[in-house]
Design a protein around this nucleic acid. Sequence first.
DNA 1: TCTATATATTCTTTTTAGAGAATATACTGC
DNA 2: GCAGTATATTCTCTAAAAAGAATATATAGA
Lengths: 114, 114
Amino acid sequence: MKPFIQVMKALSDPNRVKIIKLLEQKSMCVCELRAALNISQPSVSKHLKILEASGLVDFQKNGLWVDYFLTDGRQSPYAATLLGSLKHWLNEDPELTGMITEIPVLDRETLCKR
Amino acid sequence: MKPFIQVMKALSDPNRVKIIKLLEQKSMCVCELRAALNISQPSVSKHLKILEASGLVDFQKNGLWVDYFLTDGRQSPYAATLLGSLKHWLNEDPELTGMITEIPVLDRETLCKR
DNA sequence: TCTATATATTCTTTTTAGAGAATATACTGC
DNA sequence: GCAGTATATTCTCTAAAAAGAATATATAGA
């Protein structure tokens, strides 16, 4: 029961769902996500930790950056199914589509050297 | 986004998931659910309200009793998909299977006249 | 209409979750 | 090793969620 609840809880916060929908497009580092969501960096890190613990995302260190990406769902059947469903869901949501169209503008190199 | 979050939130509480798994077996009234979950009656009513608002359950008044049952999911595609998945999920969970085997013992007539 | 009973609602308390500021850690290049 | 930068963690505050006690509502039957 616990793993199931963990996935549901992870997906019941709007910012975390936004992160999932962003990562559907491409893997992103913390500062890119922070810019896309317009919330603080610690907040992004904490959301990512929750998503990781539930088996929805994973990460790879890349020098100073940490790239987050969606898992293949091998760690959790619940995560796998939900990630699959989410690919079809919410694609008409104006807030999300707006956010996604802004992705190309996010340039890691310029974003992080502030 | 809101309807999606609402379904996820509804399913991120253990007692509400238990209610769903119980209603998979048969429709039940509040006092039967209360006995199965061993929590207070107001608590059951509030959980049911949350489940109803998210489109996961519906009810029918039956005299003094109110029978709750799973929806066909027509009100929410998210609810529909999750209810479908849940039929396969958590069926090996000892807490849940134990609870479900106790259902036949719950007799509405004896339960409610306390 | 009066009583009894099933459920809903309100109220209060305790726990949990989310936010950002401040700080710590980890990695890179010199 | 030192300086700079990306990310993680800690701390504190505020808001939301869950619980049960007490109360209100609604229905059935005498």
